[in-house]
């Protein structure tokens, strides 16, 4: 991205003249051309729809203990098999998927939003604002997460529980916590890109034309800095789903009887050599989600890159 003149579409000379379209529509047209991205978007929507509406069709209770059917492999009665208490894994996966996906996306949104905000402001301004924001970033990077988590949850759990109920309260806490520990890399990435981009000719040009700083940032610099951010954001979804499982393990996440995907994977790990199906499905679900999100991310990136011709 760094070190170039303002790019012009390299093949535009020979292209037939097209009716001008709005950038949004243009991006959509480009996105549709990216076949993997479209397929991934479809698969991702199927996963999301399944966890949203699946429990309506698969009505087995998630906590029905059946000691006569423990650690069973997939069968018609239990398509994903059962865990060590004989609970149906499909039902648990569908239920847990809602939480895992919601946590993943929401935490990613928080991290990316805060990260871009801090990174962009630090990157475009110099001197004391940059120093102060980097101070904040360094602070967050060096805070020990575990005691801080203990403290946050201990301080706010009861208050939030009164406001929005136990499950929603824990959800908000976890999203905030994971999000607030995930924005620093995004911020530093964006800032680094800004350092480089703000010296570029096209920015100089825009500035010379009298563009205000916000316009400069939003219209000119930010779109060019989004590449690494999209990658970071898509990785953040995976990181958030995994971080939630670590939190659950430490007793800071959802109550242990709520089967999030990360939690299922964690519970399954000691039985890996005897009951691989238990780990296979949640692991596969996380992988599928990450895979599709990343391809969608790639598609978006290419679609938003004005230099590419598709």
């Amino acid at each position: 991205m760094a070190g170039s003149t303002l790019a012009s579409p390299t093949a535009s000379a020979g292209a037939p003249a097209r009716k001008p379209v709005s950038p949004g529509l243009e991006a959509w047209r480009r996105f549709r051309k990216h076949r993997l991205a479209v397929a991934s978007a479809v698969v991702l929507s199927v996963v999301v729809l399944a966890v949203l509406f699946g429990p309506l069709f698969w009505t087995v209770a998630i906590d029905e203990i059946d000691f006569s059917a423990t650690l069973e492999g997939p069968s018609w009665a239990h398509p994903f098999g059962t865990d060590d208490l004989g609970q149906d894994l499909l039902a648990r996966m569908l239920y847990g998927g809602r939480i895992s996906l919601a946590v993943g996306f929401a935490a990613m949104a928080v991290a990316v939003f805060v990260g871009i905000l801090v990174g962009a402001v630090a990157g475009i301004s110099r001197g004391s604002v940059d120093a102060a924001l980097m101070w904040l970033t360094d602070l967050f990077l060096s805070l020990p997460q575990l005691p801080l988590l203990l403290l946050i949850i201990y301080l706010f759990r009861d208050t939030l529980r009164e406001w929005v109920g136990p499950e929603m309260g824990v959800f908000i806490l976890i999203v905030l916590v994971i999000g607030s520990f995930g924005w620093m890399p995004v911020a530093r990435l964006v800032r680094a890109q800004f350092f480089s981009l703000r010296e570029k000719e096209f920015v100089e040009a825009a500035r010379a034309l009298g563009a205000s700083t916000p316009r400069l940032v939003i219209r000119h610099i930010l779109p060019n800095a989004l590449g690494p951010v999209i990658v970071a954001g898509t990785i953040d979804v995976a990181a958030a789903i995994i971080a939630e499982s670590t939190l659950s393990f430490l007793g800071l996440g959802f109550p242990p009887d709520i089967p999030t995907w990360g939690r299922l994977l964690f519970d399954a790990r000691d039985h890996l050599d005897f009951a691989p199906h238990w780990a296979l499905f949640p692991g596969g679900a996380i992988f599928l989600t990450v895979l599709t999100i990343n391809f969608v991310g790639d598609g978006l990136r290419d679609a938003l890159d004005p230099r590419r011709v598709l």
Partner: peptide, 26 residues
């Protein structure tokens, strides 16, 4: 312990007793 809690909760619910499970870091 969490599994034991689940077993007891299930039996209690069949007896008209509602149990909310809570687990605290050791």
């Amino acid at each position: 312990r969490q599994k034991t809690q689940a077993v007891i909760k299930q039996a209690a619910s069949r007896c008209g007793i509602d149990i909310e499970l809570k687990s605290v870091t050791a």
